[in-house]
């Protein structure tokens, strides 16, 4: 059966100009790999919407777009969602905040080396990769989560125990498309 993926658009409003930059590239990568996607603004994600999809990706936002931080309660469905979920950048921050972690200032713009320190189905074996960062904030590691990448400060990637709930701080749509394909194939 074909896996259907819900892309939660975390941008400051529905159909914003930012969606072309943070949501459409992810849809294009996944659909070219054979995984149909549907975009839904995060304020419109409901249990009914979620029921129609096999996996969920929480997409990133523009550097100056922090509106999602004021709406963390809109993601209460995350705690009960029993489906593979990936949070990218702002999406990772939302996952952390929803599970008791905190969003903390940690600006980064550009390509940086990322140290994968723990093996996982999403990122594979420990090694270094180059990733594209675009954020003013990062997120702390909530209780019960494992640090997958990044040794200093906030984690660059995490996983909730052995469950398929992941967060990555960098943008895989730039130079690391394999991560999206790997998530779709989990």
């Amino acid at each position: 059966m074909i896996c259907r993926i819900l892309l939660a658009d975390l941008c400051y409003k529905k159909n914003s100009l930012s969606r072309f930059e943070f949501v459409h590239p992810i849809r294009e990568i996944l659909e070219r790999s054979g995984f149909p996607c549907k975009i839904c603004h995060y304020l419109e994600v409901t249990d009914n919407v979620l029921a129609s999809y096999d996996k969920v990706i929480l997409c990133g936002t523009a550097l100056k777009d922090n509106a999602y931080m004021e709406q963390i309660e809109s993601f209460s469905w995350l705690k009960d969602l029993n489906k593979p979920t990936l949070g990218i950048c702002a999406g990772m921050q939302v996952i952390s905040a929803s599970f008791g972690g905190s969003i903390v200032p940690q600006p980064a713009i550009g390509l940086n080396m990322i140290e994968i320190i723990r093996s996982s189905p999403l990122l594979g074996e420990p090694r270094q990769i180059e990733g594209y960062h675009l954020h003013n904030f990062a997120a702390t590691l909530p209780e019960g989560f494992l640090r997958l990448a990044g040794r200093n400060d906030a984690p660059v990637a995490f996983q909730r125990g052995t469950l398929p709930l992941y967060g990555i701080l960098f943008h895989p749509e730039v130079r690391n498309r394999w991560i999206l394909e790997r998530f779709a194939n989990l």
Binding site: L17, P25, D65
Partner: peptide, 14 residues
């Protein structure tokens, strides 16, 4: 970021 402005790249990764 320096000038506290939004930045939009609507063709990014197209």
């Amino acid at each position: 970021r320096c000038l506290d402005l939004w930045c939009f790249n609507p063709l990014w990764q197209i």
